[in-house]
Simulated assay, not measured.
Amino acid sequence: MAQLTATRTAEPVPPAVRSRFGVRPSAVALPALGLVIAVAAWWLVTSGLHLIHPATLPPPQAVWHGLIESAHVLLPALGITVWMTLLGFLLSTAAGVLIGMALAASNRVERMFAPLLVAVNAVPKIAFGPLLVVAVGWGQKPILTMVFLLCFFPIVLSTATGLTTTPADLAELARSWNASWWQSFRKVRLPAALPQIFVGLKVAMPLAAIGAVIGEFYSDKPGLGYQILQYNGVGDTATAWAAIVLVAIMSILLYSALTLVERLALPWVRATTSAR
């Protein structure tokens, strides 16, 4: 009996059930359930219990109706906002990684410029909005500037942190092979820092969407931020909230795409870390 129990205990645990695309059903079912609960709670406080006035927060059915009626305006606006978000995010990534590398490479550079970066990050970015139009003009420049101001600091911080916290055993291995600075950086320090860098990128991605919408408040680009102001100005709060919902959906999809890129680019991370 004891031998049989030990044999049963030693049997391997079957892997989690996955679909033909390698995705667990719970990865789709649980977010869908959470969305249903959120919409139900939204309906309850607006239409069910009437706790919030419809002018402040329209019920979900009114927002859906506004989305359908104004889809010919909101969908092109969504395309503009997506493009501004991605372009600003890519610019922020390029600049943030380079600045983070410079901070990690020299203690003197870090001491000189780290306080300035913290000061710029501490200023509420909405305060820059009216000044951006005067400083850089109309068009996409104020949008990209706002995205950059919101995104670059998490990327700089995660890059500098990742490059300065290389595991000691890997650094010692590179020294034992007499690797040059460039070889050590390319083969050891940068790969070890990539998980930390992706943490900063995933923090920055939703901030990029926020920056794009705020920048469109002060731009002539008819993106979702512009449409929110226009519909709210004429009292059509349902359609304005429909634009806000589209911003939220856009942020979720972009964040999920970035997470997929991380999994494809860093397959060793999931293999060498414990899963929940």
Rank of each mutant, 00 (worst) to 15 (best):
V118T: 13
A209P: 06
V156L: 03
F128R: 09
A174T: 07
Y226F: 14
V133G: 06
L131Y: 12
I228Q: 06
M146K: 07
V118D: 14
A192L: 08
P206T: 07
V147C: 03
P191K: 05
S176H: 11
G225H: 02
L229R: 09
G223V: 02
L131F: 15
P124M: 04
P167G: 07
G215T: 10
L224M: 09
L224G: 02
L190T: 05
L224V: 10
P130L: 07
V213T: 12
K125P: 03
E172C: 10
A179W: 11
I210H: 09
A208M: 05
A208F: 06
R189F: 03
P222T: 09
A127R: 07
P115C: 08
P195W: 14
I126S: 09
F153H: 01
V123I: 15
C151H: 02
S158E: 08
I197W: 05
W138M: 06
G225T: 11
K221N: 12
E172W: 11
Q140F: 15
L150R: 03
L132G: 00
A174D: 04
V134W: 09
E216H: 10
L116Q: 13
L131S: 08
A168M: 12
V134A: 11
L170P: 01
P222N: 08
S219F: 09
Q227A: 11
I143D: 00
N121H: 15
G129Y: 00
F128S: 09
A160M: 08
G162Y: 00
E216R: 04
F148N: 03
L170S: 09
A168R: 15
A119T: 12
A127D: 07
